[in-house]
Design a protein around this nucleic acid. Structure first.
Length: 493
RNA sequence: CGGGAUGUAGCGCAGUUGGUAGCGCGCCACGUUCGGGACGUGGAGGUCGGGCGUUCGAAUCGCCUCAUCCCGACCA
């Protein structure tokens, strides 16, 4: 059965266990105003760290550096770019005071009314404004460009409705903000980073994604063009997994970021911004998990192999320990992360179930029988199959198996997407197919009105206008007007 | 912010026409077990979300309030 985030709520015992290993809804005090925040527990956070590490490496390989900007943004900064404020103003948390004091009536503490801030501070919902306010002072000449910064941070968006992983009030993310001398270079950067995201999603998360461009309706507030990667979850709903925006000169103009070009002429710089968030963990879960819990791609698993000893006597325990330690070291030498769980307070059966729940790709069991035969039992999480393998050179076998699992998980997700991507040529057919979930490729006349109408009547949105693919023109399924090419529709998270 | 539902032990839940609270899992102790979440025996754990009211008596009835979940509007 496919797992959707809404089904992660601890209803059944099984789900509650593995979900509780990753994350819990923040347990804030009664009456706390902050809702829809999450506590990411150690195992969940370990997955996020793997995601972070890999993305960070890829950003640096493409010439980016990390920086950090303030959490608080003066309210006035948000007034500077009209479209931007339009998009974010409604969901901002605002700091109005800087001090508490004891309640004169003895009821704990109250906000000190004398400590009102002259200008309110907004908790960043995204950092364009404060970053561009800073970039103004960093950029004077074409020699200062391109400026390629990334920030790992938390942001807050006071969403009306939250959903664990997919739309929490506070979330962790990475936001890249770049400045360029020319439009072409900025566009190239926008597409390059989209490529990085797509590569990460497919090669590391094992989640196939469509690369495309958003329609005007779905565009980032303040962007001229929003590129995105769209993934399909096991329940047939689409998930926007990452975005890369071409911001034109909007922010440069709003924050007066000009430079002297090679010809000695003053010009505004061209900007991009791009980001992915802890939502990726939601994508990872929903794309691969099954009824037994998480299924993690080996490249992002906090540990790729777990070794479980099975023993009765102290002699067996000692012998197995030695053998397992040796194997663990061999695996580590091959760069494989391994956990030898020789805790004596849990039994083998319990451990088997536990590591399945956690999505550990490969499990190695070593028992008395194996000691006699010089073998080990190897179980793979993706297929839930096991086999007994000779112990000599078993580390090579495991290394190959991890690669095979990575590929198989991707292939499974890819096949699912392919079998749930259909071409439709009439609105009636569209209405039938949309109920089955998946991506629908259909012609659209390019207007917001038609897009709105379809959304209202079917809850489907245009996920993207795909880059590449079949560019054949046709007629809009709703209005019959000419369409340049098919676009991708789906119901989305 | 609209519409629907739900708040009872750490988690998942039951609790009939009002009579002072129970089950499963988990937890603790001891013993037998250990190749797929072991079993037995004993034990700990709850101001029934909060407030006010009705009543001799409220988890149960009424009003208010808070919170959570689902469906919309908004969005990474």
């Amino acid at each position: 059965m496919a797992i959707a985030i809404k089904e992660l709520t601890p209803r059944s015992e099984n789900y509650s266990q593995w979900y509780n290993d990753l994350v819990i809804k923040a347990d804030l005090a009664e009456n706390a105003a902050v809702r829809g925040c999450m506590v990411i527990k150690p195992y969940g956070y370990a997955i996020w760290e793997k995601i972070q590490q890999q993305l960070d490496t890829m950003f640096k390989e493409t010439g980016h550096v990390n920086a950090y900007f303030p959490l608080f943004i003066p309210k006035s900064f948000l007034s500077k770019e009209a479209d931007h404020v339009e998009g974010f103003a409604k969901e901002c948390a605002v700091v109005t005071h800087y001090r508490l004091k004891n309640d004169p009536n003895g009821n704990g503490v109250i906000v000190d009314p004398d400590a009102r801030l002259e200008e309110e501070l907004v908790v960043r919902p995204t950092s364009e404004t404060i970053i561009w306010n800073t970039y103004k002072n960093w950029i004077q000449s074409w020699r200062d460009l391109p400026l390629l910064c990334n920030q790992w941070a938390n942001v807050v968006r006071w969403e009306m409705r939250t959903r664990l992983f997919l739309r929490t009030a506070e979330f962790l993310w990475q936001e890249g903000h770049t400045a360029h001398a020319t439009k072409e270079e900025a566009l190239e950067e926008t597409e390059k980073m989209l490529g990085v995201y797509a590569e990460f999603a497919e090669k590391y998360m094992a989640v196939p994604v469509l690369k495309g461009v958003k329609t005007a309706n779905e565009r980032f507030a303040g962007a001229l063009e929003t590129y995105c990667i769209e993934a399909l979850m096991q329940d047939g709903k689409a998930l926007q997994a990452g975005t890369s925006h071409f911001l034109g000169q909007n922010f440069a103009k709003a924050f007066d970021v000009q430079f002297l070009n090679k010809d000695g002429v003053r010009d505004y710089v061209w900007a991009t911004s791009w980001g992915v968030s802890t939502r990726l963990m939601g994508a990872l879960i929903m794309a691969h998990s099954d009824d037994n819990g998480l299924v993690l791609p080996p490249k992002l698993a906090p540990y790729q192999v777990v070794i479980v000893p099975i023993y009765k006597t102290d002699e067996q325990w000692d012998a197995i320990n030695k053998k397992a330690d040796k194997l663990a070291n061999k695996l580590k030498e091959l760069g494989i992360s391994v956990k030898y769980d020789n805790s004596q307070n849990k039994k083998p059966g319990w451990k088997f179930a536990e590591y399945e729940l956690k999505g550990v790709p490969v499990r190695v069991a070593i028992g008395a029988r194996d000691m006699e035969n010089n073998t080990a039992e190897i179980a793979r999480r993706d297929t839930l199959t096991k086999e007994t393998v000779g112990f000599d050179n078993i580390e090579i076998y495991i290394k190959d198996l991890l690669n095979a699992i990575q590929e198989n998980i991707f292939k499974k997700a890819y096949d699912y997407r392919e079998s749930h991507t259909v071409t439709v040529d009439s609105y009636d057919e569209f209405k039938v197919k949309i109920e089955e979930g998946g991506f629908l490729l259909a012609h659209w006349d390019g207007t917001s009105e038609t897009e709105e109408k379809i959304k209202e009547e079917t809850k489907a949105t245009i996920r993207c206008i795909p880059l590449g693919g079949d560019p054949t023109p046709g007629k809009c399924i709703v209005t019959g007007k000419p369409s340049e090419r098919r676009v991708v529709f789906a119901r989305a998270y």
